[in-house]
Nucleic acid binder design. Sequence first.
DNA 1: TATTGTTATACTCTATAACTATA
DNA 2: TATAGTTATAGAGTATAACAATA
Lengths: 157, 157
Amino acid sequence: MTRRKQMEKLELDAESSHLEGLIGYNLKRAYVIVQTDFRRVLGDDGFSPRAYSALSLVAQFPNITQTGLSKMLGIERSGLVAIIDDLEGRELVQRTTVAGDRRAQALLPTPKGIKALAEATATVRAHENTLFADFSQEDRATLIELLQRIRGLGEDK
Amino acid sequence: MTRRKQMEKLELDAESSHLEGLIGYNLKRAYVIVQTDFRRVLGDDGFSPRAYSALSLVAQFPNITQTGLSKMLGIERSGLVAIIDDLEGRELVQRTTVAGDRRAQALLPTPKGIKALAEATATVRAHENTLFADFSQEDRATLIELLQRIRGLGEDK
DNA sequence: TATTGTTATACTCTATAACTATA
DNA sequence: TATAGTTATAGAGTATAACAATA
């Protein structure tokens, strides 16, 4: 038996592994695939997944505070600082003062940020459309619905 | 409008965000939920997701080499060293010589490793059964099937 | 007292490159 | 020349704790 045949057999057997029956394991492996493709396509524009998500939400919710954004992203306030520092350094987002609360920093997209977001969004959509070309619209809708139900499980705590 | 109402409105609007329509974004957020629960439940036994996966595959494919295992896990050979070091240090896995190739390290589970794996597997299954209590068997099967199709997309490259 | 943004710090996960011993 | 395991190193990503300014 050749080495190649041996590897194929190993991979075939893996399909029946109990590991293959775990949702967590499959989620992780699937996410790595999508994330790798995202970075390949958007890395040139300097957008990591989290930078894109942050800019996207700032554009959608102008004047959101950093604490509000960190909650939406599901990360700590402290972790958001570097993300916003980066976006502000590239003049895509602006920190502004909040009337009535001098502690808070409200976030606004710059015109340059809006333009960069539009371009990145077109690229992201193309990336997913290409990657998921074999998935029907129903497949995609079912997948997103199931994933959002999982996300909802985290809100009970 | 109260602060709480404002937050609720923000979260409601987020549902219709184009970010919410991205598979990658939902995959990431869903994975964080499941991984966090995995660590909460199995952290006490000293099993990270990757350590559990590695031990599980060593038990399923005894005498697999480190390179073979790293390919099955989708990580680099170099990254596997610390994982096996840890499992070997806890006497759950043994590195053994391969007849006919003195470069390779074949991996075998120890009796202690088999026992620990059995216990961890029971815990992992309980964790997923509890977390996904609201998901029907059909939901779970559909989800795993879709995720495995995504994983298959990564093999074309 | 509590909250916002920030800094310092550390830990996990992962990748790349180079080394060694074999093949 | 190529491969298996290893080491050194670095870079994301994230969390916790503490701090100053403000509420």
